[in-house]
Write a protein that binds this DNA or RNA. Sequence first.
DNA 1: CAATAATTAGGACATATATCCTATTTTAAT
DNA 2: ATTAAAATAGGATATATGTCCTAATTATTG
Lengths: 197, 197
Amino acid sequence: MGNKGEALRQRIVASADQLFYQQGYENTSFSDIAEDVGISRGNFYYHFKSKDEILNAVIDTRLTDIVQMLDEWSKKYTDPKQRIFEFIDILTNHQNNIKNHGCPLGSLCTELAKQNHPMLRDANKMFAVQRDWLTVQLKELGLGKGAKQVAMHLLAHSQGIATITNAFEDQNFLRQEVRRLKQWLDEQIQGQNKSGN
Amino acid sequence: MGNKGEALRQRIVASADQLFYQQGYENTSFSDIAEDVGISRGNFYYHFKSKDEILNAVIDTRLTDIVQMLDEWSKKYTDPKQRIFEFIDILTNHQNNIKNHGCPLGSLCTELAKQNHPMLRDANKMFAVQRDWLTVQLKELGLGKGAKQVAMHLLAHSQGIATITNAFEDQNFLRQEVRRLKQWLDEQIQGQNKSGN
DNA sequence: CAATAATTAGGACATATATCCTATTTTAAT
DNA sequence: ATTAAAATAGGATATATGTCCTAATTATTG
């Protein structure tokens, strides 16, 4: 099995990943990716026989990357709250990209949903693993039954921040809302035994 | 000036509006719209000389519709809180469409941003008028300086709800979060004089 | 009714793009 | 080193699409 081919394959996926994020999936052509990688279309086609195939590979990589990132945080930080704050800080750390291209996960799902693309159900797994990880953290913080709902709210709020930041091209709003989100989370943790949830 | 032409023009815009929402802007062709209206491409081109022109017309209509909707609520309800609840209920009232196609405003802005389309700045006015209207309502409720921030949060949260509902194709989540959003707004109004904002 | 303007239809054209195919070059295996 | 497999390049093809053009039809106006 070609070792060289595998390396190129990964370069192609990385390129496609970037371009899909910056320009959108449909709006990115085989030629775009091939040119970005510096290979011919024919060679590209040797590695990926269809556009769905490269999309599938991109989603897989993103999913793997997300899981790895979450795992690292689980190891690196003992405090679940700190872990969640790390999650929220993704927004701040990528504010410039978000301003220009929105959220990579959200904007991809939005596009796939619009085209009724069957791979939406693979793409939204990227959200699902985050939701599940957040739920675990929140349960450790004492939120019982409500943990999953709060996790979903965290996802939704993050998405909203990304969409509006992107629409208004306004990073200030992002920072403002991140502050609000952290504050909200604090309250959520503080009041966790108010209603015995 | 042709009266007949104006009527057809409006039918075209209405069709484009729908199709842009359901399939996305780039993914909708002249032929798609012409076919949907029941006219020839040539005739279509007589009314709209470019794709940007029809996009512009769609954004204009949406903007007009939004302003009209907000004006009506301002007249129909005297209680600003009820007005805002009406705004939030858009989500519930369109839950099936949102599940399938997301938010018409948000998904359009996301697409335009991704293509670096200059008309993004026109499209986000659809959000801006909502933000301003919400700000007015919130000020009437006693939120002073914080009104605009709360208005923006309302927009962002709504967007997040739409994006996640769409990504997971899950209307239950929408209803859940709408409840949460209304509750949050209540608290916001209740505690409006806590910090004297 | 005549003539001018508005409207409509449908074809022409250039371009872009996903996909396929074949020839050539590079790498790996015996 | 020779041979088989892997990798790469670049052209061919079919299709879609935005845009343009011209001829025909309909509506309007004097």
